[in-house]
Nucleic acid binder design. Sequence first.
DNA 1: CGAAGATCCTTGATTAACTCATGTATTGTC
DNA 2: GACAATACATGAGTTAATCAAGGATCTTCG
Lengths: 140, 140
Amino acid sequence: MVADEIAVALLGQVMTLSGQVTERMRAGLERLGLTESLANLVWLLRPDTDPLPLRKIAGLLHCDPSNVTLLSAKLEERGLAERRPHPGDGRVRTLVLTPDGRRVREQLIELVARHSPLAGLDESEQKQLHALLDKALAGA
Amino acid sequence: MVADEIAVALLGQVMTLSGQVTERMRAGLERLGLTESLANLVWLLRPDTDPLPLRKIAGLLHCDPSNVTLLSAKLEERGLAERRPHPGDGRVRTLVLTPDGRRVREQLIELVARHSPLAGLDESEQKQLHALLDKALAGA
DNA sequence: CGAAGATCCTTGATTAACTCATGTATTGTC
DNA sequence: GACAATACATGAGTTAATCAAGGATCTTCG
């Protein structure tokens, strides 16, 4: 039962951490003109990887595809992202950040990552933590 | 910039992890008759510590006090928790799990902790992780 | 002792995210 | 070329959350 206790405590820590991060985000979001869910989406839209189909975004966001349509429309409206047809499949739309969107994403990362509790750890601790989390996530 | 990269990746891992956990929770919640936000509240109501004032709950939950009133009422309605007056201060109400509520909380922990990605780590890794997260949270 | 101010919870109205059901377009298969 | 399957869009409806205002209790200070 001891092992269980640790697992529960770990989970509590992770949830607390994620709560603190989203809370900090929220404080800076108004300045960026984003809501929390839009920020989550922007966070997901990495400029250095292949564009994500909307359906895949829904999976990563754990929400309904129709909701992604809504969020995408809002980002488009603000000029932060564009829906583009998939080159190989006419049914699929992908969502890509515009230059403005990339800037906002940078600000978001700056806002959150630079001040997260995790940033307080030194480099070797961060690497250690990264390895542990990587292993845990791989096992899932 | 390298350190920043790690911090960003770490944050991504934590968010992914918390997303997976809440997703898993969601799958089992219907059976327990709870919504996600109610589950978060139940999770917070540890039977082994002093009862929490509603206002403090609002802080921990990062939401408005009036929302806590609403959630508390729902838990009460289901017989899972009780609002009790604070012994020393007539303004304050505390929220306490009933026996039924404690049972539901156990099931919730069982559901989530036992199957979280973190449970896949061995005991020494879990302890290591716990120490790192503890340090990070203490710094915040 | 009593009034002013602060703190805590509640109530009601409003907003916004999200889901569900349905519709339309495109692709793949037989 | 018809049929099933997949992907996104649209519209209605649900629900959680915020905000503003109110009543109750405690604290401070004249």
